[in-house]
Design a protein around this nucleic acid. Structure first.
Length: 323
DNA sequence: CGCCTACCTACCCG
DNA sequence: ACGGGTAGGTAGG
């Protein structure tokens, strides 16, 4: 294990940890139970402790002794994970020019980044996300790691596990185990999808998706049981590098209709046609990084940011509105 | 296409 | 205290 603090130079404007780690992209980050300014999370089979400073991120890495590397190496991993090569301020400026709502939201929600996530984790986490609460999704993802992942280390009295491989989710026993642990119908989705991916060639097949274009791998992903349009778009955006992908959930639909597309028909669930209309609208508005822009915009609308003075955040929970 | 229903479960709210 | 409604959808008809 390793308790050293390392330093990654990076301004708050370029990367805001709070909005990025707590924005519903990854379900593996939490605040340190005692030290609330620190974030604890797992990726690349390592436990990371991150703390935002004015001009840098201070961090620790905990992993097996045999794998310990130096600061330069870890900095590179973080740069990849947060996609720091992308000039975010430039894009914010472009998106602000295209859209006044974005411009308003951007003032407060600066530094929101799309994480470059692991494909396997992304697929199975978002299969869990359908028709579900964040808190329950989080506990399901934790269980997957606990049951089928590898132990990484102990930290602060907790044992941390890596996210499981596709192979480890494929055995026939998995569905029943997940069922008895509260996964509901998603147990079958996970098991069937893991088996399907293994049949196709496992993680190698998933890596090949990154070389395909958005339209094609979206179609490939939707062949997985439990992966529909929205989940496929989340995966395309968050782990396959297709930044034009715009995941449309019921919430995005509500806001799109209210603020941008008044003529959109009123329906209980988002139909295929409405879904593609909304995606196309935002792609036309923001360009090839539409999914990223849209993530920033709707970050302003999440419950956890309620009480903040952004106009967009008012629509979401009329019941809870004050003043 | 659009519409309908079932699907697991934990948590919220009346 | 108990029970219906709902949560970042999806599959199947």
């Amino acid at each position: 294990m390793n308790g050293n603090w390392f330093k990654l130079l990076c301004s708050k404007k370029e990367l805001q940890l709070e909005g990025t780690l707590n924005g519903g992209q990854s379900f593996r980050w939490k605040k340190h139970p005692q030290k609330h300014e620190q974030w604890i999370g797992v990726f690349l089979n390592k436990l990371w402790i991150l703390e935002q400073k004015d001009d840098c991120i201070m961090y620790q890495v905990h992993e097996k002794k045999s794998q310990i590397q130096n600061e330069k190496y870890y900095n590179q991993l973080l740069k990849n994970y947060f996609q720091l090569n992308l000039d975010l301020r430039k894009h914010y400026s472009d998106w602000s020019e295209s859209d006044q709502y974005f411009k308003d939201a951007a003032k407060q929600f600066y530094g929101i980044r799309i994480l470059q996530q692991d494909v396997t984790e992304n697929i199975f986490s978002f299969i869990c996300s359908s028709n579900n609460h964040i808190s329950r999704i989080t506990s399901m993802v934790e269980k997957l790691a606990q049951f089928y992942g590898d132990e990484i280390c102990q930290y602060d009295g907790q044992t941390y596990h890596s996210f499981p491989t596709v192979n480890s989710l494929a055995p026939a026993s998995v569905e029943q185990k997940l069922r008895t642990n509260g996964f509901g119908y998603r147990a079958k989705y996970i098991s069937k999808s893991a088996q399907y991916i293994v049949d196709k060639g496992g993680e190698d097949w998933l890596e090949k998706l990154k070389e395909m274009d958005y339209t094609h791998d979206r179609k490939a992903l939707m062949a997985l049981t439990g992966v529909g349009a929205k989940v496929a778009d989340c995966i395309s955006l968050m782990s396959l590098g297709h930044l034009e992908s715009v995941p449309v959930d019921t919430h995005v639909y509500q806001i799109a209709k209210r603020l941008y597309m008044h003529k959109l028909p009123t329906t209980k669930t988002v139909t295929d046609k409405i879904y593609s209309q909304i995606g196309d609208y935002f792609r036309q508005l923001y360009g090839p990084y539409a999914g990223w822009a849209q993530t920033v915009l709707f970050c302003a609308d999440l419950k956890k940011f309620q009480g903040n003075n952004i106009e967009i955040s008012e629509a979401k929970n009329p019941k809870k509105m004050r003043s």
